[in-house]
């Protein structure tokens, strides 16, 4: 099924300046795989070296954060819109 991925400003330069792209996928994970396969330079900013979604990267389907559903296994419906939303974090070195 076809879904739309909305790309945050920070990552558009890795996706030919696109604001949004349509991809095929029946889960959030499949859609992101298709997206990063088409724009491989974006992958390092979404996934860590263990191939897990970076902790600060959030994926919303409408108003629903997939972390509060089934994560990357969250099912998609045709026409869904996925929004990539970063949580912004930082701080000094000491714990």
């Amino acid at each position: 099924m076809s879904v739309t991925i909305l790309i945050p400003t920070a990552l558009r330069s890795f996706a030919d300046g696109q604001v949004e792209v349509m991809v095929e996928g029946d889960t959030a994970g499949n859609a992101l795989e298709a997206f990063t396969k088409h724009y491989p330079d974006i992958r390092q900013h979404l996934y860590d070296e263990n191939n897990s979604l970076r902790s600060f990267v959030n994926v919303y389907i409408g108003e629903k954060n997939i972390k509060n559903a089934h994560g990357l296994a969250t099912a998609l419906r045709d026409g869904d819109t996925l929004m990539l939303v970063p949580a912004i974090a930082g701080g000094t070195r000491a714990l």
């Binding site: 945050p8 400003t9 990552l11 900013h45 600060f56 970063p86 974090a89 930082g90 701080g91 070195r93």
Partner: peptide, 17 residues
């Protein structure tokens, strides 16, 4: 602490911003 980014800052950052 000094106004220098930590490794933690870098791990959490995105380009462009």
């Amino acid at each position: 602490h000094p106004a220098l980014p930590s490794d933690y800052d870098r791990e959490q950052a995105l380009p462009f911003y």
